[in-house]
Design a protein around this nucleic acid. Structure first.
Length: 216
DNA sequence: CATGGGATTGACT
DNA sequence: GTCAATCCCATGC
């Protein structure tokens, strides 16, 4: 008795499984969109991903644009691993490596809506306010206890866990805009935010908020 | 070998 | 709004 007939349209936009390596072996822009609404978990804490950015070796803002170096070894390597690097000499920034082995491409996680392990996050951040716990790429790694030692760790069965969206929950609406904090290739609309989220790192410019743009 | 610039944050004017 | 902290790496002399 298979009531679930072939041909019937899936509920809506089947999310795929972000805890499987195959999820990451595709276009980095696609992965960046689909990670919105997924759960990121580490160190006894977790949150919903509400903001991402995509980076690809074909454009100058990507670390791998210059080719393979010791720093970009993970980024250029096989998909489904964490690329964690030190930013401004101070912060650890977390990326998911995408596309096939040998192509430098990754999704930067920029903000989470905290959902579990809030006290541990507050302790690691030294802050109380919920909205400030994970509203930035350096903040969320500190809140989850993600450090440089997790660079090159697997996103499937590793210490960092990524879970699919709740299939019963509404599919998040996504708004795109220019990436934050870069000078090169700043015109590309490769920042992806959950529409209406109060937990993004910075509000979107009004024009981009309205557009819901789709120029990727 | 010296210099300068970051995929940032928090403190301060 | 401005600015320092702090380190890796690319570039240039």
């Amino acid at each position: 008795m298979t009531g679930l007939s072939a041909g019937a349209p899936a509920l809506a936009d089947p999310p795929g499984d972000p805890s499987s390596l195959a999820f990451y072996e595709r276009s980095v822009q696609e992965v960046a969109r689909e990670l919105i609404g997924c759960t990121l978990r580490h160190g006894g804490s977790a949150g919903l991903i509400v903001e991402t950015e995509s980076y690809h070796e074909g454009e100058a803002a990507c670390h791998a644009h210059i080719g393979l170096t010791e720093r970009t070894r993970t980024l250029v390597g096989p998909p489904g691993r964490a690329y964690v690097y030190r930013s401004y000499g101070i912060h650890a920034l977390l990326n998911m490596v995408c596309e096939k082995d040998g192509v430098g491409a990754a999704v930067l996680v920029r903000a989470l809506e905290p959902t579990e392990g809030l006290e541990a996050m507050r302790r690691r951040r030294g802050l109380d306010k919920l909205r400030e716990l994970c509203s930035g790429p350096g903040k969320l790694t500190q809140a989850l206890g993600v450090g440089l030692e997790l660079n090159d760790s697997s996103l499937s069965g590793g210490p960092i866990v990524i879970e699919p969206r709740d299939p019963a929950a509404p599919v998040p609406e996504i708004v795109t805009g220019g990436r934050i904090g870069i000078t090169k290739a700043a015109e590309l609309p490769w920042r992806y935010c959950r529409r209406g989220s109060a937990f993004v790192s910075r509000p979107l410019p009004p024009a981009e908020r309205r557009a819901g743009a789709r120029e990727d």
